[in-house]
């Protein structure tokens, strides 16, 4: 008698590899329905559920390429990237990189970046709730302590490097404003985009390279003493103030403090 682990391993490999023959020897055969057909029902649910999960996360991609193309690409993706966990809001983060190497989509150079943006927006929409750091909480720190502050980014904030005007394309497509897309030539120049869930709404804004440098250092947990430089201090403090005003931190710690 096969062990449960043996059955589940064969079943799983068969679903992912589209090979109903792997688990068929364990399944009751009858004259009306072959084991492979019965296993195929589960295979269809496996792929269909994951395509729907990707569709939920990447609506602009589906609209850009059309449903049949999207389903074809998603089916290949599912075979190469089966989910590692049951929380499907975390599934599909590699879809942008996958599209970058997906030959049938090679003519749409902007597609991977639009997908990366949609993944960021999905991530911030589903991020856990967390309290926002109130600027007043920093008021009691001494000047020496202020230099040692490390900020904790809010879980619903992301800074991402994109290109091809991915934010403009997504906005246009989601608003069904395809007419304004005609003749539009996406700029391949990379840019930084800050995305956050502010209240319950997604908000995006582009950042300059200098703003992004300061933001990346803050989000990476560097201390203010490590980040701030005399020649850029005013602009850097302005970036910090903007983050505090818009609730982009969840907390802070003072380096070296117990």
């Amino acid at each position: 008698m096969p062990t449960l682990r043996e059955v589940q391993s064969a079943f799983a490999r068969g679903l992912i590899a589209r090979d109903t023959g792997l688990a068929a020897p364990f399944v009751v055969e009858d004259e009306s329905i072959a084991a492979a057909e019965r296993l195929g029902i589960y295979r269809n649910t496996f792929v269909g559920t994951l395509i729907q999960a990707l569709r939920n996360t990447y609506p602009a991609i589906e609209r850009l390429v059309g449903a049949p193309f999207f389903e074809g690409a998603a089916t290949v993706f599912v075979g190469q990237h089966p989910p590692l966990g049951a929380y499907l809001n975390e599934y599909g983060g590699e879809f942008g990189d996958f599209l970058a190497g997906f030959a049938p989509a090679a003519s749409l150079a902007y597609l991977p970046d639009v997908a990366r943006l949609e993944w960021v927006l999905s991530s911030i929409a589903n991020a856990p709730d967390a309290p926002v750091l109130e600027p007043a909480a920093l008021g009691s720190l001494s000047e020496a302590e202020q230099g040692l502050v490390r900020f904790e980014p809010h879980p619903a904030v992301r800074l991402v490097r994109l290109a091809f005007d991915a934010d403009v394309i997504r906005q246009t497509v989601i608003r069904h404003d395809e007419d304004s897309f005609k003749g539009f030539a996406p700029d391949p120049q990379p840019f930084w985009l800050l995305a956050q869930r502010e209240g319950l709404e997604p908000v995006m804004r582009r950042m300059t390279d200098a703003e992004a440098d300061t933001t990346r250092a803050l989000f990476a947990g560097q201390t203010l003493a490590e980040i701030l430089t005399p020649e850029s201090m005013e602009a850097q403090v302005s970036v910090l103030a903007d983050h505090l005003a818009h609730g982009r931190f969840a907390g802070f710690a003072v380096a070296g403090a117990a």
Binding site: R5, Q8, S9, F11, A12, R13, L15, I16, Y42, T45, F46, T49, L50, A53, P82, P83, L84, G85, A86, L88
Partner: peptide, 11 residues
Amino acid sequence: TAAGHYLADLL
């Protein structure tokens, strides 16, 4: 789930 993969169905 089996062998580290989630199979998105009630098997």
